[in-house]
């Protein structure tokens, strides 16, 4: 059976290529039909905030990459409740939809996966 991989994405969408490159690992894993999970943690949760306008920063926004996750079979998406609350996103509708986990949920999530990559 294929080994599962959890990708922990900790970079904000506009702080460089880190967020995009974490998504690319998830998309590549999905393309190979591997069991992939994606956790948005720390500034990574900012990728899920609505109403982003990358063009004003002369950047391509991540919306298309995030939407592509489900097309590539990557549908195990999680976000850290504490990271969201710290950034004022606790009551915000996030896109794409994610399962929000507390500290214990995070620990259980990480334990469930064979491999963990943090970017």
């Amino acid at each position: 059976m294929a080994r599962s991989m959890l990708i922990v994405s900790r970079q904000s969408p506009w702080s460089g290529p880190g967020a995009r490159e974490a998504l690319d690992i998830a998309l590549a894993g999905g393309a190979y039909d591997l069991p992939i999970g994606l956790l948005f943690l720390d500034d990574g949760v900012l990728q899920l905030a609505p109403g982003q306008h990358g063009a004003t920063l002369q950047q391509k926004d991540l919306t298309a990459n995030l939407k592509a996750l489900s097309l590539f079979g990557v549908d195990k998406l999680y976000a850290c409740a504490r990271s969201l609350a710290d950034r004022g996103l606790a009551n915000t509708a996030l896109a794409p939809a994610v399962e929000i986990l507390d500290a214990q949920g995070l620990a259980e999530l990480i334990n469930r996966y064979d491999q963990v990559i943090t970017l």
Partner: peptide, 15 residues
């Protein structure tokens, strides 16, 4: 490509 990372993660005991 990134497929090489996934392939290695599948083949190895530890990443």
């Amino acid at each position: 490509g990134l497929g090489q990372l996934h392939e290695a993660a599948q083949q190895a005991d530890r990443l």
